[in-house]
Design a binder for these strands. Structure first.
Lengths: 213, 213, 213, 213
DNA sequence: GATGAATGAGTATTCATTCAT
DNA sequence: TATGAATGAATACTCATTCAT
């Protein structure tokens, strides 16, 4: 049975999600600066004041979008890591699949991560939020690194620093995603993100397979 | 001898550069939104009104930074392409060198390119400027593609679509740069951008060297 | 024995006092504008909504502080007036003592009285409250005037209008209190309010003692 | 002949005055909190933004009203002090006259001085402004004290501390003014400020005339 | 061309007040 | 009665842009 306390807690969380969903829609349509708190409130069918009951300010609302996707990413990555039956190559494939899924779940991920860079942004976030974002980032990149570590230990990958490989995995993803969407707007090309990324990762795989530099 | 017309033209161009240089400094320090036109005017030792004699608006001034770097990139890439004495592998190495140089010349390049994505931004630019940016982008990516085309034709690279390889080259660059600067803030790590990129490109090279998919 | 009605009444009054005490603390610390109803609710360990069960609005809550002090002042002054055994000079001394006590009881008294002046404030008060404040003010000043009337009748004071003397008594008090607190901030001097006021009243006494204008 | 620099300076000063005059009107009608910057801008027939070219913020605009009146007060008091031909009693009379004039010039004087007390207010003022207000206050009260000093030295006034007497002079003024205007609103009485003050000062004079306490 | 004073539209945020529970 | 989440009107302040000089 659900206590009254618990029901309230749930209601509150639902409201938060309602705001986050609306914020995501508005931010992704208009970008951080053109999006107004009123836009978001309207989209969430709430009043502007209510947003401030759940988020300290606009920056923190925006940052919480990153937090949400990072949490999802972390869960998914952890799941892959913990599948004992997979060998490093299979895990690598699974990780790439995760990145596609995460991208499908929220194509803004790269943009959000990028927005977080701004030191002006960081100034307006609460210590707790910054800490959580840092931790999630570190853990995710650490988890990817584990896969490479295992691959190197088992003699399947050449002996490069696992963290560097982890960074490159992410970097290729981020770069290609950004580059593709950039071209989408400038050239009005059709989306061939997935095939480009697939090619990129194939090449990457072949490169790390070789034992000697 | 220089006509009076020409001298005026030159004077005008000098003034434009003066503004662009100031803008770059201010934008790179404060970011697009926190930077004010007055900040830039002060940095350029001009009055705010004067900026509008040279640039339609703030967005266009910002976009012109991208234009400038794209022009530089294009010149450098063309130079590599036209060196008949280099084989595709050497050209590929030269291209990577170019990208480092461009990054050194203006580390904001990725951020600028990224800012251009925003459709809100594009709305505020003049047709001409958009067209020029598109053309430069297309030509640069096309030039890089030429190298891959040549490499494939000569049987040195595996037979993938040259444009795809070109995109990947750029994507790796953009992605790693962004990821590195992102981590710089989140983890306070020291900059190991260059070595990470070097590793990424080594792996990429090895991958495209192989004939078999 | 206490009826259920009466007990309720008492409970209600206790709650009112609880709010008034909290309000006094918060208003005196932050001033009328910076103090929020939520601050006061927290201080009173009640919810914001509850405040509105006891007070029409923020202005009325604030005004009720004045009312409270005016009630106290009136009781104290009446007590002095009714002491038949005191002569006018003794009553005058007793009145000054009362004013010190009232100031000790609530140093904000002058500021509260002053805030009431604002016609914007008056607009937000209920008719009843305004009436009560007016009556108490009139009665207090009237009571003080009685002392002067008696003194004049008995030939102890020069024959000035008792109400004027009453006003001056109050005015000296208010003025010196305000001036002292004003200087406290501007000059960071230590508080010598009491001695200044004592001197002022000595001079005042000597002045009204003289028969000849 | 007037330089272009000087003309600009004058124009600027005129604009400041235009704003100050409008601000005084609006503040005195609505009080500090109900008055909006837009109200003031409208009254000054300027745009809201323009106010901020001349005053840092609302508080500073309000405080500058006090500054203006303090400057006027200081000039007037200094003038009295420097009239060598007047004896202390005449100077005292002249000082009281000055206070009436100052009150006529700007009846908000007491309220402004009072508003300055708030430490919240002080936080928002620039160092320079605070310093100037402090200096003017100190000098004015000091100048009044000189009169008493002279009176005491010449054996005309009883030997009390001149600063205390100075404070009382001001305190009586402030108190009676406040009390009168307070009554004006509450009792709708007709204005007898001047006669009350005259009586108060007569009594005061008689008190300080006596040699022995 | 250059200036810089003036503009005024635009917005994040606050907080007194309400009302469903 | 008491609650406290939700409201939404209200407003100080900013800054890109203009235009008279």
């Amino acid at each position: 049975m659900m206590g009254i306390q618990e029901r309230k807690e749930r209601e509150k969380e639902r409201r938060r999600q309602q705001i986050v969903v609306a914020a995501k829609r508005v931010f992704s349509e208009k970008g951080f600066n053109k999006a107004t708190m009123e836009d978001i409130a309207k989209e969430a069918e709430l009043s502007p004041g209510t947003l401030y009951l759940y988020f300290k300010n606009k920056e923190e609302l925006y940052a919480s979008l990153s937090l949400r996707i990072l949490q999802y990413l972390h869960i998914r990555i952890s799941h892959v890591i913990n599948q004992q039956e997979l060998d490093p190559w299979q895990k690598l494939d699974a990780l790439k699949e995760v990145m596609f899924d995460v991208y499908d779940f929220d194509p803004l991920i790269i943009i959000n991560m990028f927005h977080l860079q701004s030191s002006e942004t960081l100034k307006n976030l609460s210590e707790d939020l910054i800490e959580e974002i840092k931790t999630l980032s570190r853990n995710s990149i650490g988890a990817i690194a584990q896969v490479f570590e295992e691959g190197i230990k088992k003699g399947l990958f050449i002996d490069r620093h696992p963290v560097a490989l982890s960074d490159i995995t992410w970097g290729i993803f981020a770069g290609v995603v950004l580059w593709e969407s950039s071209k989408k707007i400038i050239d009005q090309d059709k989306d061939h993100l997935k095939s480009t990324l697939k090619t990129a990762y194939e090449i990457f795989d072949r490169g790390i397979m070789l034992k000697r530099p």
